[in-house]
């Protein structure tokens, strides 16, 4: 008896024999890295110190939960992922992982991550993680994504939860700082994704995903990018006056927001012909900068959590000693 399969040399997709890396791809490692970073910041800036192993475990379980929701997203969206250039090489449309395997991995990792986070940290954090997985997989992926141009506005909440979960892991409750970190990512998501949609519009049209660029056109999307970018400014700067902020954060936030608003203004001023002529250079730059924008804010939170920054903060009356 051998384990040689008759279909090895056929043109059929080789599902059921995926490599380990294919399963890792299902967990959206790039998104996971952002989740790890923001959740870690949430834990480290909280006023309660945890054992390093507890921090490590909590971050791993939060990342696993995020990965699980990514796998469920790929399972549900396999039909439209096949149509879009950006997602056609994902494991399911590429034929390396069977849809059932992705569903199984997503469901089992969701359960494992939530239960383990509850045991490692606390059940409020685990509940928030469970809600995040549900929100991303069911509310965003299965419902909003294909039904409304506000999909990424509301769905953005799923990506905004990790720092709040991190904060709850350390403190056991949801503080105002956790809400502000959530709000920062929530308000940042629309300009980030809509700038991507501006130069990836054909992909979304082909897959009939009702992104704002598809339903209302690029001019409206440009105006919305500017609107959300302006609305983001008070959230980003206001956070600087809370316990997790300080003069360093505020300086970084002012600089980053000035560049971000300028980029959004440029996008708003541009005509479609101009953008097509230079291959959407301004939009692509804005999209790339949006990643640096978020990273910069959270890195500044981390700096503010160091003893050196606390000493500096003590010299300014606004933040106290």
């Amino acid at each position: 008896m051998t384990d040689i399969r008759a279909d090895i040399a056929s043109d059929e997709p080789e599902t059921g024999e995926a490599g380990f890396g294919d399963f890792v791809q299902l967990l959206k490692p790039r998104v996971m890295s952002l989740v790890v970073f923001t959740a870690l910041v949430g834990v480290l800036v909280a006023p309660v110190r945890l054992h390093p192993v507890e921090v490590l475990a909590a971050i791993i379980f939060i990342a696993l939960g995020a990965g699980a929701s990514g796998a469920l997203n790929m399972w549900w969206d396999a039909d439209i992922d096949r149509l879009m250039k950006r997602t056609a090489k994902r494991p399911i449309p590429a034929g390396t992982v069977a849809p059932g395997e992705a569903l199984g991995l997503g469901l089992s990792l969701s359960g494992l991550s939530v239960i383990m986070l509850g045991l490692a940290a606390n059940w409020l954090a685990a509940g928030l993680l469970a809600f995040t997985v549900f929100f991303y997989a069911v509310v965003y992926t299965m419902w909003l994504k294909r039904s409304t141009p506000q999909n990424i506005v509301i769905g953005g909440a799923a990506g905004a939860f990790p720092p709040m979960i991190g904060w709850v892991v350390a403190t056991g409750h949801i503080g105002v700082e956790a809400v502000l970190m959530f709000a920062l990512i929530f308000m940042w998501t629309p300009p980030h994704f809509w700038s991507l949609a501006l130069f990836m519009n054909s992909d979304y049209s082909k897959a009939r995903v009702p992104m704002l660029t598809v339903t209302h056109g690029r001019a409206v999307t440009r105006a919305n990018i500017l609107g959300y970018t302006l609305a983001l400014v008070p959230v980003a700067l206001g956070t600087g006056f809370t316990a997790i902020g300080g003069p360093i954060y505020l300086a970084v936030a002012i600089a980053l927001n000035a560049v971000f608003v300028l980029g959004a203004w440029r996008i708003w001023c541009r005509h479609e012909a101009e953008a097509e002529a230079d291959g959407y250079r301004t939009e692509k730059r804005f999209f790339t900068f949006s990643l640096a924008y978020l990273f910069g804010h959270f890195a500044a939170f981390l700096v503010e959590a160091t003893p050196w920054a606390a000493m500096l903060r003590g010299q300014f009356g606004l933040w106290g000693a």
């Binding site: 054992h51 192993v53 507890e54 490590l56 475990a57 791993i60």
Partner: peptide, 24 residues
Amino acid sequence: GRNVGVGLALVAFIMLVFGLTVAK
């Protein structure tokens, strides 16, 4: 590759739970 990957992931999980137990 898949078997080695799963094996290493399991070993890492066991080590993590053990470390967590010691810390707690």
